[in-house]
Amino acid sequence: MTDEDVAPEQGELAITRTGDRLRLAREAAGLSLADVATRTRITQRHLSAIEKSDFSELPGRTYVTGFARAYARAVDLPEAEVGAAVRRELEEDAYGARPLYEAYEPTDPARLPTARMTWTLVIVALLLASAYGVWRFLSVEPGEALVAAQNRAAEESEAPQSDVVALPANKAGTTPSAVAANAPVVLTGISEVWIGFDDAAGKTENWRTLDPGETYQVPPEYIQQFTLRTSIPQALKVTVGGRDVGAIGPADTLVKGVSLKPADLLARTEGNSAPGAAAPATRALPKG
């Protein structure tokens, strides 16, 4: 037997794997790997692995056979025969030791976000949530609480007012008219004016803006627990039981610590604070 007689037989034996058969059929049909991928909806990476008979690159044993059969249909080869050949090759390669199921298309680790990016997104989300919470706190006035307090004050104001408090004498030696201890304290905006209510520590717990002509009856619990502050005293009218107490501070000056108790407010009608009571703090506002 000569070398010439052996060569053809070796050439035929060289094509023993199913992947080679599929590749040759594709090339004979004039198709590219991308064309087969379009027809089968299988990624080119997996089709290339089938052509190389490198089944370890494929998701799982069941998918290897299915992919090979789909490839065979795309290049007009008998899919049952190709499927059987692939199963034999899997057994020969001891492929059965691999898990029977994996995800169809494992996620490419390069596409997963890095730990730094993940933490960055988490921090950004927390900052946005915090900013929204601050915005809501600063932009929303204490509407429901104030409305409820006003309703309670309105109900209480309808009750008979029997408790009367005598006001202390002022420096002029005269005593302002007696006033009911629960006389309503009403704030009216002469022009647009901002008002706030400070607790004993000087912290502003509640605030609101009065439009021109808008009135606000101070709830009884506010009278006992808070003091008044405003930055435009001349734009605010304060009345106790319908009686105007006059200016509560110099114009365009931040005034705070103004007692809301009827006796202290009416003591201002003579131009002086009640004896022993601390005068409200003022701070001139910058002009312009």
Rank of each mutant, 00 (worst) to 15 (best):
M1C: 04
V6Q: 01
V6E: 00
A14V: 08
T16R: 15
R17L: 14
R17H: 11
T18P: 11
T18V: 15
G19A: 06
D20R: 07
R26N: 00
E27S: 00
A29W: 05
G30Q: 02
L31V: 02
S32N: 00
A34F: 04
D35Y: 00
D35S: 01
T38Y: 07
H46S: 09
L47F: 10
S48N: 11
S48H: 04
I50A: 03
S53H: 08
S56Q: 08
E57T: 07
L58R: 12
G60I: 04
G60V: 13
R61P: 15
R61T: 15
R61N: 14
T62S: 14
Y63G: 02
V64T: 12
A70Q: 05
R73E: 02
R73Y: 03
A74H: 01
V75H: 00
D76G: 08
D76F: 09
P78K: 10
P78Q: 11
A80H: 03
A80V: 06
E81N: 03
A85Q: 14
V86M: 04
V86Q: 11
L90M: 15
E91I: 07
D93E: 15
D93I: 06
G96Y: 13
R98S: 12
P99S: 03
P99I: 09
P109N: 07
A110R: 15
A110T: 15
L112H: 08
P113F: 09
P113G: 02
T114Q: 09
R116H: 07
W119M: 04
V124P: 08
L128H: 06
A129H: 09
A129K: 12
A131N: 13
W135A: 14
F137C: 09
S139Y: 04
S139V: 06
P142M: 04
A145V: 14
N151M: 12
Q161W: 12
D163S: 08
V164A: 10
V164G: 08
L167Y: 04
A172M: 00
A172Q: 03
A172I: 00
T174K: 07
T175I: 09
A178Q: 08
V179I: 14
V179P: 01
V179N: 07
N182Q: 07
A183T: 08
A183G: 09
A183W: 04
V185G: 06
V186E: 05
V186P: 03
V186W: 12
V186A: 11
L187R: 12
I190M: 14
I190N: 13
S191N: 14
E192S: 15
E192V: 14
E192C: 08
E192D: 12
A200T: 11
A201T: 15
T204H: 10
E205V: 12
R208T: 12
R208W: 11
D211F: 12
G213A: 11
E214V: 14
Q224A: 10
Q225H: 09
Q225Y: 03
F226S: 02
T230E: 09
I232E: 13
Q234E: 15
A235H: 15
A235L: 13
L236P: 15
V238K: 01
T239I: 11
R243I: 10
R243A: 01
V245T: 15
L254W: 15
G257H: 02
G257K: 02
G257Y: 06
S259E: 02
S259A: 02
P262D: 07
P262V: 08
A263V: 11
L266K: 05
E270A: 05
E270L: 01
G271Q: 00
A279Y: 03
P280I: 05
A281K: 06
T282V: 09
T282F: 05
P286L: 04
K287E: 05
G288M: 03
